[in-house]
Design a protein around this nucleic acid. Structure first.
Lengths: 198, 198
DNA sequence: GCCAAACTACACAGATCTGTGTAGATAGGA
DNA sequence: TCCTATCTACACAGATCTGTGTAGTTTGGC
């Protein structure tokens, strides 16, 4: 029944519990919220015993942190892919906005997972908050590199501004459960970049 | 000992429990998060019995909704006040950004209470989400009126864009625990409005 | 002084949540 | 075949959370 589709190579176990736990956690934590989902729910959904969860991740916090780290990696890869083809440098910056827009076609959008985590965890020194912060730094850095490549005078300033648009669009889209704010952000970005529309 | 400072007029009770509950709830829910704070904590902090909380608000959800409704009203009043003096119409739009910036001088900033509530409560049909959505609509509407008064061609489009900036600034400020993103948003807004800097 | 509303104190039900302890099953590698 | 790592099943501790039931107290208005 179960196809292999492993891809991982070295690991000998067919489907290590950790992997299944992370898949379940990703879905549940994102869609229902971190605090709202208990470890029992995650392990049950994953079809993995709760004991394994604790043995592998130390506790709920460890699982949450790993969930966000994974998401950060996936997102980074997705962004890199979306901005590496041979388009005009200026277009690559706009491609970031398109990437955000496309990303949330797949999921029933609940906003930025990192912003949500920050909202759920007030303590700024919590390890999970550090993961979230680093994610945003990564995105801003990526934008800065693209802005530099596009030859803008103050690439970091531009990156900060574009990040603001992305964050605002994500927050508003989550609040309204509509994709429209992403379009608003994109059109605004286009003007900011001085590219002709159409 | 206790000064009167009632101001409410009709209400005969010196300090109705509901009021004290709302004060405690506002502080606790905003700073520590809605799910993180239990009803026992709120009633204890307010010095009001838990029974009163349930008699007055029906339950935690009722208290949360009322907390946000109050905050919305205060915010609306604050915004109105910040944009009603006889300044240039264009300046009034910028005053909104200053208002956001000043608002978070008082509190140890934890971002937009309404966005946080939306992040904590995934169900879009939850009554609390409706309060949050209405708040954002109110802000956008206010921006649209100001944009119209300032004579902009497409006031609603401009309002949507400015709202995006505010939301992005709030989210980023909360994530970084820094006031700086508000400045970024303001300078960007200034350019958008075509006003000369300084 | 009396009534009624508001509030208190407090116990308790019942659910849920994180985390642990333990004994046994399963399976790959030597 | 045996060792070891991984995972399971399951009970349980202990905390916490929302919400209720009840009997009694305070207090302002008449």
């Amino acid at each position: 029944m179960e196809q292999r589709a492993d891809g991982e190579g070295r690991s000998s176990r067919r489907r290590p519990g950790a992997e299944r736990l992370l898949e379940a956690a990703s879905d549940l934590f994102y869609r229902e919220g971190i605090r709202a989902v208990g470890v029992d729910t995650v392990s049950e959904r994953a079809g993995v015993s709760k004991r394994t969860l604790y043995n592998r991740f130390g506790g709920k916090d460890g699982l949450v942190a790993e969930y966000l780290r994974r998401r950060d990696e996936k997102w980074k890869a997705y962004l890199r892919e979306a901005t590496e083809d041979g388009a005009e440098p200026r277009e690559k910056l706009l491609a970031v906005f398109e990437a955000y827009e496309e990303w949330l076609v797949g999921e029933d959008f609940r906003g930025c997972a990192f912003a949500n985590a920050a909202a759920e965890i007030p303590d700024p020194d919590h390890p999970v908050r550090a993961v979230a912060r680093r994610h945003k730094e990564g995105v801003e850095e990526h934008l800065a590199v693209l802005a530099e490549e596009a030859g803008f005078d103050e690439p970091r300033t531009l990156a900060g501004r574009l990040l603001l648009l992305l964050e605002g669009a994500a927050a508003t889209a989550a609040m309204r459960r509509s994709r429209e704010p992403l379009g608003v952000a994109r059109s605004l970005a286009r003007e900011l970049l001085g590219a002709r529309p159409r």
